[in-house]
Design a protein around this nucleic acid. Sequence first.
RNA 1: GGGCCCGUGGUCUAGCGGUUAUGACACCUCGCUUACACCGAGUUGAUCGUGGGUUCAAUUCCCACCGGGCCCA
Length: 822
Amino acid sequence: MPAPRLSDKRWSIDLEKRIQEEHFADEAKYSARYGFNPNSGKEIFVIDTPPPYPSGTWHIGAVAQYSMIDVIARSQRLIGKEVKFPWGVDRNGINVEFTVEKNTGRKMKTYDRAEFLELCAETIEEFTQSMRDTARRVGLSMDYANEYLTDSPDYRKVTQAIFTELFKQGTIVEDLRPNIYDPVEGTTIADAEVQRLQRMTRLIDVKWQTEDGEELIISTTRPELICACGIVVVHPDDKRYQHLVGKKAMLPLPVDGREVSVEIATHPSVKSEFGSGILMVCSFGDQNDVTVFRELGLAPFQAIDLDGCMTSIAGPFTGMKVKEARDAAIEYLDANGKIDKIVEKEQEVPVSERGKNPVEIILLKEWYVRQTHIQDRISELAEDIEFHPPRNKQFLQDWMDNISIDWPISRRRWYHTEIPVWYADDGAKIIVPPAGIYVQPWCQDPPAGSEVLDRETREILGNFDKLKDSLGEIIGEEKVFDTWMDSSNSNLFVSGYLNDMDTFEKAFPTAIRPQGKEIVRTWLYYTLLKSALLLDKPGFKHVWIDGLGMDPWGRKMSKSLGNGIDADSVLECGAGGRTGSWRVRGPDKSVQLKANKIGSECFRLWKACDAQVGDDFHINPEEIESKYFGVLTKLFNVARFASQFDAPANLDTTPDNLPVEDRWILAEFANTMEKAENAWRGLDIYNATQALKTFGTGILPSHWLEMAKSRLYDGDQEAAWTVHRIVRDFMAALSPVCPFFTHHISSTLYDSSAVDVREFPERTPSDDELRSLTSAIEEFNGNTWRSKKEQGISLNAPVEGIVIPDELSEFTSILTRMHKLE
RNA sequence: GGGCCCGUGGUCUAGCGGUUAUGACACCUCGCUUACACCGAGUUGAUCGUGGGUUCAAUUCCCACCGGGCCCA
């Protein structure tokens, strides 16, 4: 037997790692292979890769999602597109600030700002490195040489330029409004960042009195806010209290610098069955209070300051933290006989997603992106976007239907992009930098070329360089942007906005936004908002929303459930003879999962085959191995078998004397390749991979290879041509899913790599009549094998009495030879 | 409370109005056959969550319910 050119006996994780190392080692070669050339003349396909946020470990579900984004990138290259697959890292944000605070045991605001930023930059860089490694390990064919970081001047200057443009346009405004505020972290947060937690709270029934002495019971969980009470309301249909409407209620706590009584009015938002059915409305206990104040045109009180302490209107409670003030207020009310009863009750408390601190709603001057006016237009623009799967568009629509307030974008934190403005001494003028320069107003003066604008009307008053001396002392803005303000530019940035407008013209709307469904209301929504405001265009041609990686029982993986599986352990499973084992807490008991070998190729194949886009997927290493490693083994061995026969030089020209069985399998192969190509064009990973897997592990080895074997051993050139043509093209078609596997096989056998194919392989000759015989062939082979089995003879033993059906008469000689029919 | 998704052989999964309801893994039986024993071949195994409805026809469409999950309030 001639030696196979594939020398390894089987596919292994060590082999996989060897190929990977070699693949990434030569940077020039890597860039030539996967880099982006906007001037190639090919159709540009820009992928707005989600820039991961570096935090110790990368969730295996996310790694699986990224591997599918890579499949999209590779399959688009395969069908001839010029793909830009950028590698970006999202590094702005409160998370790294928390990490530094935790590591050093010091709160951010006790640091010098520059010193703190330095610590954040160091910390985030450490985390970033491990993500770069994992990205390569799972085979992501990204443009690492042109890595972008959202905390770099290059990226931040784009965010700042977009801000300035929207400000001039009037869609970004500065205003004093009630804001959701985290007093512990000292920053405003957006609606999308609020979470609700169940907590035990005291519900206090406080005795109030009208000015003429009638007693009212009002239930509240926030008695410290009585000083900010603007009105007392009852439901308009509540018969019990109609006589009170129009009267005044005396505040049951002492206050300072404000009226001691408030009006009693009606409002439809009151729930009559809750407590006594009378509600005090304070600025601001919750979102409903905000609504009532706005609707009734009441002037809000500032009861809580930026440190989370009571302001002077709280009288005796001034300066106390909210929680202390609450205790003191209860004590005071109790001492004065103004408490009817106190009930401990479970209640949902709004907290900040990042810090888990109870949030307050307070009046603050902040920056906002106006968004309520443009919802209809975004919906209209979104009609031109193709969603994969279509149903996941609903997540976006649901969120948009619920938007009622503008997006507050300013934050009182540090490791974020700075808001690029300065204020003139008189407070009436504002200075903005020219586009293309990253500025830090908290420590820098406005750069040359800045403009001076009227703070209210945004009218351009002139060039800063000329007006400089008339502006008095210039104060830099200290606030920064919400991180989504940065990340929602990612598609603009990667498509070349501001940096390469020629490419941008060709590349926008960005070809595809792949992402998880959990950030539709933030990342996707804010990006579409930006595209609509800035360019009045849809941000994308395709939006690809994948499901989430779940534990083997279909539950979300989380630290608290103890059901997490680490990505690296799966990718390294089988390397150097080590096996993988995972202790995972199930719904009933802990389960020990074990696997011997997985690696990136098997992992990717599993994700591609096992879950349709958009479906949540269960991650069970045992299952990944048992269902998919065998597929790789099978395909590897088909190729290894082929590799012992020399490949004819002219694989692109079909010989004209092919026997019927070769024409038959080539027709079947053509059909498989057509399915695969159509699926790749339609971004349908599942069906492309399924078609290839079915052919490559089924009909090809089981039926055709068995027929062709003896011819191959006889040195038959047509059989060699057929098997090599199929193996070569098959590897190209599968290369998006298993790049290293197919690269190894194709470069060993054909001296050219499957991952370099930039045009989907030409179809082999098709023949519907021959294809119609496929089931007959399968049935005949099956029957023959069964018959041998029933006779107790081995499959390669001669057999008598088998009759080939008429429809397969063309195959008589090959079937006779294959089964040794006598 | 609202939205979305999912309940198909032991396990996972395909199906998207008419199929002998895919396929994989596991089980069982047989076979060391010049690619593959980490293999091959052949069996066994499903009232398609429950109850209604639409239809000549329902796993597939509609409604209700039950169960699981995710997101949001």
